[in-house]
Design a binder for these strands. Structure first.
Lengths: 354, 354
DNA sequence: CTGTTAGCGCCTTCAG
DNA sequence: CTGAAGGCGCTAACAG
């Protein structure tokens, strides 16, 4: 035992200049090669599972590597192999349940595929976004990018990503494969559902004006209302509880109350619900309420919230699968896909089973 | 303009063997050097802000680099400099608001410090945890590790991390710097608050038995009750709404109802609240309710939830700051720190201002 | 099957 | 102040 590791032990003890890591020196492929009496090439082959290595040699190499606790240096490996085994994820933010769920879906697939995740958020700032994208170069094999801002100037237009990428909830652009939640059809369906339940004055609490999904949902609401004779009634919102709460109060104070309120997402619907609760207005008896997303809390509030279910984790998972396919075969046809959403009827609209 | 980029343009057009990345070739330091009529060494120095470069030369180099959209290749840089500019974040999971908030805090500091984040979750599986830690070697300069499972065998004991690391909400072990939410004192404070508000039969909805924080909160509850004459009354829970809901129902059905319920976290408190709502039991009139965490919804439910505020984003931010200090100076003394929590009194305990 | 060798792109002495 | 040159650790031809 001792004899085998003498060389390395000596190096460990008398490392001339301790390279970082708290004075530790790391074991390289050379150390393994020397201990196993083979060349570095053979070690590389053995460790990477190539076929052209004699069984006994492979065995010996693996043992030595294990004993020395060798672990290949990632930077070196990816510098020479030109692959990083890492996927870059660039998001507008990391805050809230949406991103959390998204990451969960992405993470599951990444783990399954043995890929690492380099995450970065740009806080809605186009400059930071550019910087984040640039910084990904040489660190990742592909990119998952979410850029939901419907700015006049497409921040991606000028960015040569220089690598395969998939767009998430960002519309379709730059000839990249894209995957979007089908917000438009979802919102239209919900609006029609409310109409068919007998509501005619349906108010809509919108999302941020520069957000792609918010835009699609508003469009779906308007189109859903189109032939009904009902006029659109839109309040501003921000996708958070606070703005839903504010919108709820505003609705109560308006001269003519709506029959139903459709919030562009569940968090706003909940904020609105609490505003109604505080004012003693009963849901659904006096006003019906609907949301969008089906967050976990939607089923626990009282009354249960009617909403559109969006499987966000599936969104992330599917996006990464698309990217992996692109990575495996760059000629995979590029398409824009939609993630289906589903109407979930609960008590908040007054037409639900108990 | 054209003349300057002729060389590179030619290369881009007639790259002999397109090296990965969908057939694109990337611009290297050599390209910049050639365009700027200097050596690669000078480019390197100029771009890295070293002082020994003539102002006009630096200017020219920066211009060329900008025009060519040059961005250094990470793997190459970290191979030669032995630093990755990346922090590894190893978490038990990526699911839910807690991790989302944690990541937000970490991300803010990382961005501020120009560091990237390599995230990985191990789904509560010790083997996966080991694999994740091993895979971090050579890819990151330091580690933020959350390992809240109070298993008999410390999964970290055998792991030579081989690099600076900070433990998050994982107790104190392995001689690593640690940062923990002060769950014990928080729970004790809350329990005493409930007692002093006149409640004597206080039930506690516990968290997962193998979770460090859950354990600390339970301990705080017991100690808070210690000299009061009240007996502990503990129900199992899982930190999610569903288990809080179940516990709430169980409490209602028990022969002797409690005066107050203290849930080990807000999600369970909300689940419990909805169970009470459904049963028509009024909070706080019939039963007082308290939680722990102060998630955003806590202030929007009706009645507002009395809870202990935990600044999770601050937890992440502080942990990364500690790690950065460790990275900057390995001799920084190692200590276990506590993140203070604060009592937030709302209406759910019946002693609050409206 | 195995060893030798030439880079991958960048940083960093060491001479000028 | 600047250029030339030697690696960093690993992979991938190319010869044996």
């Amino acid at each position: 035992m001792q004899e085998f590791c003498s060389d390395v032990c000596k190096r460990l003890q008398s490392a001339p200049s301790a390279p970082s890591f708290g004075g530790r020196v790391s074991i390289t492929i050379k150390d393994v090669a020397r201990e196993a009496n083979v060349s570095v090439a053979t070690v590389s082959r053995a460790l990477n599972g190539h076929e052209n290595v004699a069984p006994d040699v492979r065995q010996r190499v693996l043992e030595v590597a294990d004993r020395l606790q060798y672990s290949p240096h990632h930077a070196a490996r990816s510098l020479s192999s030109r692959r990083t085994q890492t996927i870059g994820v660039v998001l507008p933010d990391l805050y809230g349940e949406f991103f959390s769920e998204l990451m969960r879906g992405i993470d599951a697939v990444a783990r399954e595929a043995g890929r690492h995740l380099l995450v970065s958020s740009y806080h809605g700032n186009p400059d930071e976004q550019g910087a984040a994208l640039r910084a990904m170069r040489g660190r990742v094999d592909g990119l998952l990018l979410m850029s939901p801002f419907v700015a006049d100037a497409d921040p991606l237009a000028g960015q040569a990503l220089g690598m395969p990428a998939v767009l998430l909830n960002s519309g379709a652009r730059a000839g990249l494969p894209a995957l979007n939640v089908d917000s438009y059809h979802g919102a239209r369906t919900m609006t029609r559902h409310l109409l068919s339940a007998g509501h005619s004055r349906i108010a809509f609490i919108a999302g941020p004006t520069d957000n792609f999904d918010a835009h699609e949902r508003l469009r779906g609401y308007r189109d859903g209302l189109a032939d009904s004779g009902s006029a659109p009634w839109v309040l501003p919102g921000d996708f958070d509880e606070a703005s839903g709460h504010a919108a709820g109060r505003e609705l109560l104070e308006s001269g003519e109350r709506p029959d139903a309120v459709f919030a562009a997402n569940d968090m706003m619907a909940l904020g609105c619900l609490f505003a109604f609760n505080q004012a003693g207005v009963r849901v659904p008896h006096e006003i019906a309420l609907a949301g969008f997303d089906d967050i976990p809390l939607a089923r626990y509030v009282h009354p249960g919230l009617t909403t559109m279910r969006v499987d966000i984790a599936a969104l992330g998972a599917r996006a990464l699968r698309t990217l992996m396919a692109q990575l495996a075969d760059p000629d995979t046809p590029v398409a824009a896909e939609r993630l289906e959403v589903a109407l979930v009827v609960r008590q908040s609209c007054g037409v639900a089973p108990v």
